[in-house]
Amino acid sequence: MKKRDLFIIVYCIIIVLSVMYATQPLQPLLAKEFDISITKASQFTAIIMLFLAISPIIYGYILEKVNAKKMLINSSIILFITNIFLGLSSSYEFFLFFRTVEALVVPAILTSLMSILANIDKENIKFNMSIYVASTVFGGLVGRIFSGFIATNFSYQFVFYSLSLAILVSIYFISKLSYEGEATIVKPKINDVTEILKDKRFSTVYILMFCVFFVFAGVLNILPFRVKEISSDVSEFQISLLYLGYGMGILVSLNSRKIIKFFKNEINTVLFALVLFLFITIFLVIKNILILFLLIFLFCLGMFTVHSVSTGLANSMKASQKSLTSGMYLTFYYLGGAFGSYIPSIVYEKFGWNAVIYMFCIILIISMLLLIRRKKLFTHL
């Protein structure tokens, strides 16, 4: 694989993930700007997560095979236009409409990029996939910090205009890609899906990831409002710095093999990470912003350890239908993220931050008990 191609793919992933998460630190500002509730502001992130969850099904039925490069360019052009319109939007309805259009094309771009990365260098698929995961994490980190910095020093509109400029650069880069193959999209058959779900190992991993990402997305989505609640003087840039802990995902995804080796096997690793994740979640009731900042590092360490090990598990339990099992994993993962970005904001609005944290702890304890109960199913891996 040419280094230039790898650079282009990584750049595109970072930009798309930046677009996805750019609204998160801005949510209190957008809520004030459009005079909307916390719940409505949370939809700006939740809508993209929802489409990432259901897109494998939709795209699987519309497109069985499509030229990956062509889909990448066309989808990126739409993303370029929608970001300009997000900056121009003066009402909640317009902003949500353009965000929904983005939600339709983001999965198409990520599917194409993943397909190119998997097919352009088939000998190094595992390494390429770890690069894909690390790039998505880095993109999510850059997008949040960059949007907070620009919104504080210029205006929130400039966040979207500058992202459009970055997308324009990515369109130029994509045209230089040497890959001309097709992106194969899985067409899920109901029988195959039910067969996989009947396997308790798969259903355990899927439920676990739904719950873990529900909690993770919920905390990160309400965090800007919580910080503003503690201190109204906090700027958007200071809010975005709280997401620096997200960078732990890069370290974890590139060192997951060493972590598993240390804990002897995958299930022990997941259980330890779950305990850490739960323990840190309990302490998020603390009202000190600096302590919250430090806790988020450990919080992200727990979540990304569960995620990277579970991804490997979902891909190693069945020799055939790998694309379907990993596609279903992503569906459950992003469904957890979509619901987690929305439902906790309703609880937060009605009952406050502590009630949300207690709800998260109950969800994590239930998923941990489920994993402990079914632990023996994974002994033959």
Rank of each mutant, 00 (worst) to 15 (best):
P107D: 13
Q321T: 00
D35K: 14
A103C: 00
V10K: 04
N255G: 07
L244P: 10
I171G: 01
G140K: 10
K65W: 07
K264Q: 12
V309E: 06
E102N: 09
L208P: 06
F297I: 03
Q321A: 11
S323G: 02
F173I: 05
T39P: 02
E266D: 14
V309I: 11
Y59K: 10
S170F: 07
V227D: 13
I48K: 04
F216V: 12
G247E: 13
P344F: 01
V275A: 15
K258D: 13
M317P: 02
F34E: 09
D233E: 15
T325A: 05
F51E: 05
L241M: 10
L298R: 04
F351I: 06
N268S: 13
D199S: 13
K287C: 09
A217P: 00
V306H: 09
Y132W: 09
I230T: 10
I48H: 06
L163S: 12
L284T: 01
A31P: 03
S256G: 11
I57Y: 08
Y11M: 03
Y358A: 10
A31R: 04
L220C: 08
E64R: 15
I362V: 15
N354L: 01
V186W: 11
F214D: 03
I15R: 06
I250A: 05
I145E: 14
Y348E: 01
I38D: 10
M248C: 11
M368F: 12
G340I: 01
I13N: 02
V212C: 15
F160M: 00
I222Q: 06
F213L: 08
T269D: 11
I346L: 07
I116P: 01
M359R: 06
I9R: 00
L208G: 08
T111K: 01
K189S: 14
D199L: 10
F95M: 06
F95G: 00
K126M: 14
S178I: 00
V159Q: 06
S235F: 02
I296C: 04
M20T: 10
S162K: 02
I222P: 07
F149G: 09
I282S: 10
E266S: 12
S326H: 01
M49H: 13
H380G: 13
I190C: 09
L88K: 08
K264T: 14
G312R: 02
Y246D: 04
I250G: 05
Y59I: 15
L292C: 03
T311A: 03
E266T: 10
L165P: 07
Y348L: 06
K258E: 13
N268I: 12
F95I: 04
L26P: 08
F85R: 03
T194L: 15
P224F: 13
K264S: 14
L117T: 08
G148Q: 02
F360L: 06
